[in-house]
Design a protein around this nucleic acid. Structure first.
Length: 194
DNA sequence: GGCACGATTGCT
DNA sequence: GCAATCGTGCCT
């Protein structure tokens, strides 16, 4: 008996959803479903951990140094993907927020994996499990390739946690801001608190 | 042209 | 605790 891998149906999150305050978008993304379709075979997971990057003032953001070839997607329109290669071997997926010219984005750090999808507890693992690479950099978040839907799931308010972002200690005071948003559970890239 | 390093991961 | 692995950004 084959596992039903049909992606959850729901409201497609378009540019109007992402063209809002980045911290608000980050919080609202928790519990939504990220879908990646390759040749008609959907892979999906529920978003349980994200981080907001609000350049160019945010020293932890890639856009802090201004527009460069790599970060050009961050300066593009909302509702598009910003995908980059880190440590020469892992890809990281971001959703661009705010209008073009305002280089803010949200890093997808962890998913609760859907049927047949591997472990997604970490930004590199999310991209590996869903088959996301730099060919999607700058692509619009639209079906079928890559998109986000609100299927009606609503996390209980008490389940949402905020902590400082991971791996940005170099950013000084910006590293202390609680811009990592989590849905408490067993699928996070790191445990909450310490 | 050269070089240091990273929004990570997995193994010792 | 640390190696893997390479594109990017900055310097010469």
């Amino acid at each position: 008996m084959a596992t039903d891998r049909t992606a959850p149906a729901g409201r497609l999150l378009g540019p109007e959803f992402f063209d809002r305050d980045t911290l608000r978008v980050a919080a609202d993304l928790l519990g939504t479903v990220l879908v990646r379709d390759v040749d008609g075979l959907p892979r999906w997971g529920r978003i349980v951990e994200v981080e907001a990057y609000c350049g160019p003032t945010d020293r932890a953001a890639h856009s802090w140094r201004g527009l460069t070839p790599r970060t050009s997607a961050m300066f593009g329109p909302p509702g598009h993907a910003y995908v980059y290669l880190i440590y020469g071997m892992h890809h990281c997926l971001n959703f661009v927020t705010r209008p073009a010219g305002c280089p803010e984005a949200i890093l997808v750090r962890a998913l609760e994996p859907g049927p047949g999808v591997g472990r997604c507890a970490g930004p590199g693992l999310v991209c590996r499990a869903l088959g996301v690479d730099r060919s999607l950099n700058g692509a619009p978040l639209e079906p079928p390739a890559l998109y986000v839907v609100d299927d009606g799931f609503r996390p209980s308010p008490g389940a949402i946690a905020r902590t400082p972002r991971i791996g940005v200690e170099y950013a000084g005071e910006w590293a202390e801001l609680p811009w990592r948003f989590c849905l408490a559970g067993p699928h996070l890239s790191r445990r909450l608190r310490s």
